[in-house]
């Protein structure tokens, strides 16, 4: 391939990647109740519709609440697990690591029907604990990967140095290890939040009219009618994700030991 053709290809691919987002943004400002593109006129009515609609608002609040709780549980459990996996010298360690990361590979529909059947038995369909547990299972591997990456670039000599300087195990963890793997932990927390915030397949199965998350309502809206409110919701969700992505870029530069 010659250079101009190569660059033209890359520009085309880049457009393919971002065009859908731009289309959704434009569509959210349409003034007609259709997905026609480009819109014939512009308005904010679909945003007004979102904020005026009790069901949309409730699902937005539910999604945020679930995602916030998942962030706490997945980050705590995942960070502990990553440290255990990194430091531990025990039989079956690689199998254990595989188990922790398996939800990334196992098709979502399987996790979904499996949890569906278990939640029916436990009467947890459409419950807040049910959503938090289900989303934590799929968010956990992302926290573990991020924290383990941070730990693998962490120089264990620093822990030896700290102990030679008189610090006990807890002091070393608090003053040396934790601050240095913090960027990985925070990145894991952001991934956990976004994973839960966006999760759809499992949520479709374990939801009930009592508790629906935003993606579930979007799915129902898209399959039932052409209501551009869903585009306005999509833009709001994008804002949340982009905001969090910007946050990770802010914390990334301070990461790790350079030595």
């Amino acid at each position: 391939m010659t250079k101009p053709i190569l660059y033209a290809t890359v520009v085309a691919i880049a457009l393919w990647m971002i065009a859908p987002m731009l289309v959704v943004i434009v569509t959210s400002f349409t003034d007609t109740p259709s997905f026609n593109f480009p819109p014939s006129g512009y308005s904010l009515r679909w945003y007004e519709n979102f904020f005026a609609n009790q069901a949309w608002r409730a699902s937005f609040i539910n999604t945020t609440l679930v995602a916030a709780l998942v962030t706490i549980t997945a980050t705590t459990i995942g960070t502990l697990a990553a440290i255990g996996l990194h430091k531990g010298r025990f039989f079956g360690k690689s199998a254990m690591t595989g188990l922790m990361l398996a939800p990334l590979i196992v098709p979502g529909i399987l996790v979904a029907i499996g949890l569906y059947s278990v939640f029916i038995q436990l009467n947890m369909l459409g419950s807040l604990p049910g959503f938090v547990i289900a989303h934590t299972v799929v968010a956990l591997p992302l926290v573990i990967i991020n924290v383990m990456t941070a730990l693998s670039t962490f120089d264990s000599r620093l822990e030896q140095a700290a102990s030679s300087l008189g610090a006990g195990r807890w002091e070393i963890f608090r003053r040396i290890t934790m601050p240095l793997i913090m960027p990985g932990v925070l990145a894991g927390a952001v991934f956990a939040f976004i994973t839960s915030f966006d999760e759809i397949i499992i949520s479709l199965f374990i939801q009930s009219p009592r508790l629906q998350t935003l993606p579930v309502r979007m799915f129902q809206s898209v399959t039932q009618d052409t209501d551009p409110t869903v585009a306005a919701v999509a833009v709001l969700m994008m804002l949340v994700s982009v905001g969090l992505a910007a946050l990770t870029r802010l914390i990334k530069p301070r990461s790790g030991s350079k030595q």
């Binding site: 120089d155 000599r157 620093l158 030896q160 140095a161 700290a162 102990s163 030679s164 300087l165 008189g166 610090a167 006990g168 040396i176 240095l180 790790g256 030991s257 350079k258 030595q259």
Partner: peptide, 17 residues
């Protein structure tokens, strides 16, 4: 190690970054 009251200097310096 942390009760031995020894100073250790490492090849990689091991300064807390």
């Amino acid at each position: 190690a942390h009760k031995r009251n020894l100073g250790v200097v490492f090849q990689s310096y091991a300064l807390f970054p």
